[in-house]
């Protein structure tokens, strides 16, 4: 149970637990998918971000950052910006290759462009070009090399290289509510607000995860298992339970971002949006501070931005 001394702040009637989200150093890329229409660009974006909720099981985490109008994209067509994260640059390069090749190149009318300037890059189009079986060709415009790969609806155009930069994965907030409906509504409001922040994605289904995990398991083969501390059904069973009386549902929102600042800002707007009647507490998940390189303290995030807003 959470001791009263761990509650230092409130937003309206919702208590903010004095704790922190423990986030990890990752590598991130931004890709811009364009197509003849927003619908086709979205089809490719949804495909490339599929099965990419957690590096634990999916080797990468991905999500849609935002929609782009035609005048914001390299080829003046409607586009979608997607962020992809992995634990290191090599792994991310492999995921980009696989996913751009299988999910974007396959989708009618699409093209795929690098959306991140960085000294560190992964060769993507430069490898996918071999699909052209000798009929591929390249174009260089300024410093940008594009590959044109013949496909059955014309050509698939893809940047040779995609930028990779250090990123932050695993920022999070936990929403502890009186029932499932109320908690889900608060989580939905939070994800809506968080999606307005550039440079972040929420990799889980519709941005929300219910099966938060802890490190390790009683079963040796598993590296992660049910986060019993936040399972309402185990409130009096688990000695580690952090579910207060009156809380019957806990939902988590995980945030990956291209910077610690972007993740903190997303957490800030998410906390405010989630603080609704029926939400007893807002908290965050961590591993005692020993695993992650970033400690995002809820109180500090809220205080820093309140001070910034007042000045």
């Amino acid at each position: 149970m959470i001791d009263d001394w761990r509650i230092l702040m409130k937003i309206k009637s919702t208590e903010i637990v004095d704790t922190f989200a423990e986030a990890f150093k990752m590598s991130g890329s931004r890709i811009i998918i364009t197509a003849e229409s927003k619908q086709w660009a979205m089809a490719a974006a949804q495909s490339i971000t599929g099965f990419a909720t957690s590096v634990i099981g999916c080797k990468c985490e991905a999500g849609i950052e935002k929609e782009l109008s035609a005048d914001e994209t390299p080829d003046n067509r409607p586009g979608i910006s997607v962020l992809i994260f992995a634990m290191d640059a090599d792994g991310l390069g492999k995921r980009l290759m696989e996913r751009v090749g299988q999910c974007v190149m396959t989708c009618p009318t699409t093209a795929c462009f690098n959306g991140l300037e960085s000294d560190t890059t992964a060769i993507v189009g430069g490898q996918l070009r071999y699909f052209g079986d000798g009929h591929q060709s390249s174009k260089v415009l300024g410093k940008q090399r594009l590959w044109r790969i013949p496909v059955m609806d014309g050509e698939f155009v893809v940047d040779e290289r995609f930028g990779i930069q250090d990123a932050v994965g695993g920022g999070n907030i936990l929403i502890l509510g009186k029932d499932q409906k109320t908690t889900l509504r608060a989580a939905t409001a939070a994800t809506k607000a968080m999606r307005e922040i550039d440079g972040v994605i929420l990799p889980f289904p519709n941005g929300v995860v219910r099966s938060g995990s802890k490190v390790g398991s009683k079963y040796k083969a598993l590296i992660a298992s049910s986060n019993d501390a936040y399972c309402p059904t185990l409130r009096t069973v688990s000695s580690e339970s952090l579910v207060p009386e009156g809380v019957n549902c806990v939902l988590e929102i995980v945030i990956d971002g291209l910077s610690e600042e972007a993740v903190a800002e997303a957490m800030h707007v998410g906390l405010h949006a989630a603080a609704k009647p029926g939400i007893k507490q807002l908290s965050a998940g961590n591993y005692g501070g020993n695993l992650g390189q970033y400690h995002l303290h809820l109180n500090k995030i809220l205080e820093a931005r309140e001070a910034s807003n007042q000045s």
């Binding site: 003046n76 174009k139 415009l141 300024g142 594009l146 044109r148 014309g154 050509e155 155009v157």
Partner: peptide
């Protein structure tokens, strides 16, 4: 006969440089 995606980028680029390229051409 088709609309080459990469050509859109080239035509948009030279239009920014002041050359007369129409939306129809892009």
């Amino acid at each position: 006969t088709y609309n080459p995606t990469y050509l859109r980028m080239y035509l948009s680029y030279i239009r920014k440089l002041g050359m007369e390229v129409s939306d129809e051409q892009i």
